[in-house]
Design a protein around this nucleic acid. Structure first.
Lengths: 344, 344
DNA sequence: CTGTTAGCGCTTTCAA
DNA sequence: TTGAAAGCGCTAACAG
């Protein structure tokens, strides 16, 4: 046990182990570092390991970080933990970076630019080795890219228009198209969107894809001028309300820009006595774990979160290894369930 | 710019600022540290701050952590980010510790003991100043308490039987009672539980409270021997299935140990053509943000996540300030919605 | 194969 | 009020 008692990591230092084992601290350092295993005699190594074990030695990553410049920590910034499409992303990226001995450090912006900037700053201060950012809004680009000149950053899940940073994203335009095509095939002719915040690139892209496919298939759109300030249940309700109260020619199918907004819309529709799908078809986006289990189960677009997470994690690892990487775009898939149906 | 280029924090060190400002690094350190503001002449301080700003100085918390023993980081361990009752807890505790300049570092065990032990180890290695643990299963107690001898730990959300660590929890026994009483008042006489994992203390307590109140009110329980391995949708389905297939006298009201399990049960019941609440009443637990919006909206027990998070954060801060703290237990509230109704 | 040495960037005595 | 100096625990040359 060393003299000072401000030690969070367990109190036992390399020096303690060295003394107890009767060798020099650098020998202990080498013996305990898998990368330098080989540079120390087998029997000393075993002896050192035994001593370290007995003393309960735990490496101090803070000290290691100061010396080596690496903290084995990946900063992960998300917008809203309540939006559960990120859960599989986090699981997969954790698994990916964990295999390299790294650990994600998750923080949440609550979709606020100031909080975003703050978190970025904190993470840089804490010297995370790299970052995976899933919370980017267009206003965040400047500060994010300047951080990108300091350490490797991968933008995941939420695309960022005009960024030079590598991205792992899903083809949102294609996703929007899928919904419109599904509506067209089901015989709808008047449709509408409940749009998410336009400064989160996913949503204008879904809008663009949906709108393009509507044109191609001769669907007419009722435009709801309002867009959600956040992609959440309450905002879905609010935009749905706006649609109900202002329109006299009611669409027969609605595309809510994500599942949470669809949930909000659904509950507002129930209050109004409008039945889904009998009176109105409704589709969401993301395929949250629960939306296949509710009534009516939700037609939606699958979000390949596992792949996004795995690829983002692998990309970070490659970046840290000095390799070049290229952005990649995954394909979404339509999931048809009960909330949409053909017109008669 | 210093010579070495392994600097993650922005590249500018205290020394750089000192040189540029024409003072000694210790003066810069004092000038930039709010706690030592006073010990440096006002005009030098302003000058130093200006230089630091111009150079884009960012403190290196790794170096600071090594020297001072504090990293301004609170480890937060959760079981499952997909279970959104934790979202408000995280928001509130973030707000609480943020006011003291600290940042939570969130990690997820996925309800696995080995992962739990690993994360604990990592966090100790990284010298977090304290930890808030919301993922404890009974098997985790040993290792958790031994960590508790190294740094302050608060157990939150999930109680831990027999622990000596301070807790911020909700009265789960009372919560279980609330549901049974509600069933009794609604005229039910044969009821059942879909129980969560018994090594997570919330669930046996809910069971005990529910069972006690059943006895008091003369309710008979159909016992489902199986318990969920995890408190998730799929397990809710599975236990519901077990109840459906083995029982010939069917209960008229069911208490699922949390909302996710209730969702699973609900979807299984729909397949079976059993209507909720017409044929069967169903209650959940936690009041997840979405369960008031689905159909039928779920009767459940409110989980005061905001308070749990705030209190846990404040408790950690007090512990770090050397104060004594006492465990506290919050009261849950019943939320009656559409999924339960009176028998005729 | 092992020991010596020199710091990483910062805080914090102790002197001046 | 400021400077000098020591050192937190560890890694990584370089010697031997």
């Amino acid at each position: 046990m060393s003299t000072k008692e401000n030690l969070g990591a367990g109190g036992v230092t390399l020096l303690d182990v060295a003394r107890e084992a009767g060798v020099h601290v650098s020998t202990v350092s080498r013996a305990l570092d898998p990368a330098h295993h080989s540079r120390v005699k087998e029997v000393t190594r075993q002896h050192i390991e035994a001593v370290a074990d007995r003393l309960g030695y735990r490496p101090d990553m803070v000290a290691r970080g100061l010396k080596s410049g690496r903290t084995a920590t990946i900063g992960v910034i998300v917008a809203d933990l309540g939006n559960t499409f990120i859960t599989p992303v986090i699981h997969a990226l954790t698994a990916a970076v964990e295999s390299a001995g790294m650990m994600p450090m998750i923080a949440e912006t609550e979709d606020d630019h100031d909080r975003f900037a703050n978190i970025l700053d904190h993470m840089l201060s804490r010297r995370v080795d790299a970052m995976i950012v899933m919370s980017a809004r267009s206003a965040d680009r400047q500060v994010l890219e300047s951080a990108g000149r300091i350490l490797p950053i991968v933008v995941a899940g939420r695309p960022l228009d005009g960024t030079t940073l590598p991205e792992v994203v899903v083809d949102e335009y294609a996703g929007g198209r899928l919904i419109a095509e599904h509506f067209a095939e089901s015989g709808h002719s008047l449709v509408a969107q409940l749009r998410g915040p336009l400064d989160v690139a996913n949503f204008p892209r879904r809008d663009a894809g949906f709108t393009a496919a509507c044109h191609e298939h001769g669907l007419e759109q009722v435009l709801v001028p309002e867009t959600a300030t956040l992609p959440v249940i309450a905002e879905g309700r609010r935009i749905m309300e706006a649609l109900i109260s202002t329109t006299n020619n009611r669409p027969t199918a609605i595309f809510a820009h994500n599942d949470l907004m669809a949930l909000g819309a659904l509950s507002r529709l129930r209050e109004e006595g409008i039945r889904v799908p009998d009176d109105l078809s409704l589709a969401g986006y993301n395929d949250l774990p629960m939306v296949g289990h509710i009534s009516p189960s939700l037609t939606t677009v699958n979000y390949p979160g596992k792949d996004v997470g795995r690829l983002a994690g692998e990309m970070i690892l490659r970046l840290l290894g000095g390799e070049q990487v290229e952005s990649c775009t995954l394909k979404p898939e339509l999931v048809v369930r009960e909330s949409t149906r053909a017109t008669h």
